[in-house]
Design a protein around this nucleic acid. Structure first.
Length: 464
RNA sequence: GGCGGGUUCGUCUAGGGGACCAGGACGGCGGGUUCUCAGUCCGCAAACACGGGUUCGAAUCCCGUACCCGCUACCA
């Protein structure tokens, strides 16, 4: 058994406990299976994932389930499913066969923690008290931890108290289990929330006492609500599931995460994950806790939607509705070629995937005849309306008319002026009758996509 | 209370002694495009927490103060 390394090392002329290692990067995220995935943890998970990817390292998912009371059945699967949705790919964990340092669930290594705690007792570095095991803070120099984001953080030992590593019920404390896992999993960089910064002195001490080399740390700021409090369930949308349900794209969420605390060297707001990876560095990372701004996320989501080509977007919408709305899914997927054209028109008006169906269902079998009052706002005289309607029917029924937007535009404009109607009167009326809506894509594009049969059918069926 | 972290437009941020009467983005407001809603383009309002230093010169460096967050659990 190697004697533990109890001494700090010289780094940049100072005694620090953690020094950069030459070994390949290994990072981890340690979610608790509570039944939902917190968006703040996801933010941190993303930076772990990015950092690993940037260094051709390993991203590990470890399940932090020592807290039996909070354990929810299936909750672990929820984590994996949502991480997969976001595109966070991990290389090691309970789900990956052949992962080299199992187990990856803390609940499966309770004996290991116990054994390690007893080892520290044997070495005189910890002691029994009231049935628990305490780690002894030895007197000595201040503990200097090098943090990738905050620089050197100094802890005086006199401000530290002996801490419990093994509870009297035989379970390890979170603090201790983490330290053992950091060593067992050969973690080189711990990227985690700022709420753990104060405890880092313990971690560094415990890891050193256990014979390990403390990893590099990066303590990320905690996301906040609009009132600047820590992002909580009560106020914001903290569940990752919510973002998925709303129809936020993984790319948009990730791009948004990368804008919180970090900024692109060219001040770009919209960029890809690959671009983020090529430019990212913790040195330029702000330690201020950002407020999660849903408006900007929505804007970004709209931009990402518009960046997709029509077919790609159609596929994305199709699988979204397959999960969330069977009726919409059936109708959208019944005729992909048609839907792709609809998507082309709908695209510029979408902020989220969820917006698509309510905004565009009149392109399918969900047409609602407009109320008399809504049409009367544009043409109030029934006789005029009927005349105009019949003229439109005659025009559109003409077999020699090319069913194409420019042609429709030209011919319908001719008709509109010959009837002495303003463009607004003529076209809003038509829009209302054909779509049932007052807000749609440009009228002639809409007519073209809807097709002659549907358009004529709806106009003919309309009675003032 | 002690300890640790933080503080530039409402929000995300750029900036790190003179290039800053502080730049970009979201949101807001106004306008152009137009048959609506969007999109897009143009423009406007909007910030260096406070007080002392250091300096010819401070958003930037130093010291205090205030406020916010975290830790201070046999929670994670």
């Amino acid at each position: 058994m190697p004697w533990p390394n109890l001494f700090p090392q010289i780094y940049f002329g100072r005694m620090v406990y953690n020094i950069p290692m030459n070994s390949p990067v290994r990072v981890r995220i340690a979610p608790s299976p509570t039944g939902y995935v917190h968006v703040g943890n996801t933010y941190i998970a993303y930076y772990n994932y990015i950092f690993a990817k940037q260094h051709n390292g390993t991203f590990i998912v470890r399940i932090d389930d020592t807290d039996q009371a909070r354990h929810v059945a299936d909750a672990e699967r929820v984590i994996y499913r949502l991480f997969e949705w976001l595109g966070l790919v991990w290389q090691e964990g309970a789900t990956i066969d052949g992962s080299p340092y199992p187990p990856y669930r803390q609940s499966e290594k309770i004996d290991r923690y116990k054994e390690k705690a007893n080892e520290l007792v044997d070495k005189g570095l910890a002691y029994h008290l009231d049935g628990a095991i305490y780690f002894k803070i030895q007197p000595g120099d201040p503990i200097v931890v090098h943090d990738l984001i905050r620089g050197e953080v100094v802890f005086e030992r006199k401000n530290l108290k002996d801490f419990v590593i093994l509870k009297s019920n035989g379970f390890p404390t979170y603090q201790f289990a983490t330290c053992v896992d950091e060593i067992d999993h050969k973690i080189t960089h711990v990227i985690r929330g700022e709420d753990h910064l104060s405890n880092t002195a313990f971690h560094v001490l415990a890891i050193t006492a256990l014979g390990g080399t403390p990893p590099m740390y990066a303590h990320m700021p905690l996301l906040r609500n609009t009132d600047e409090s820590k992002l909580s369930k009560r106020q914001g949308h903290v569940s990752l599931q919510w973002y998925k349900d709303e129809g936020i794209l993984p790319d948009a969420l990730k791009n948004f995460f990368s804008l919180m605390g970090w900024s692109h060297p060219e001040q770009k707001e919209v960029f890809s994950e690959d671009e983020f990876i090529t430019h990212f560095t913790f040195e330029k990372f702000r330690s201020r806790a950002p407020i999660f701004d849903l408006d900007k996320l929505r804007w970004l989501n709209g931009v990402k939607i518009r960046e997709m080509d029509n077919e790609q977007l159609f596929n994305t919408l199709s699988s979204y509705y397959q999960e969330y709305d069977q009726n919409a899914y059936q109708q959208i997927s019944a005729n992909p070629q048609y839907s792709i054209r609809v998507v082309g028109l709908a695209k510029e008006r979408l902020q989220t995937l969820k917006d698509f169906w309510p905004q565009n269902k009149y392109f399918y079998n969900e047409y609602q005849v407009p109320t008399k009052e809504s049409v009367a706002k544009f043409i109030s005289d029934d006789a005029v309306l009927l005349q105009y309607r019949d003229a439109v029917i005659a025009l559109l029924s003409d077999a020699s008319l090319a069913w194409e937007k420019d042609e429709l535009d030209a011919k319908l404009h001719q008709l509109q002026s010959s009837y002495g109607l303003t463009p607004k009167q003529a076209f809003m009326t038509l829009r209302l009758i054909v779509t049932g809506e007052s807000a749609t894509p440009p009228l002639f594009d809409t007519l073209e996509v809807l097709g002659k049969d549907t358009v004529l059918g709806r106009i003919q069926a309309y009675l003032p």
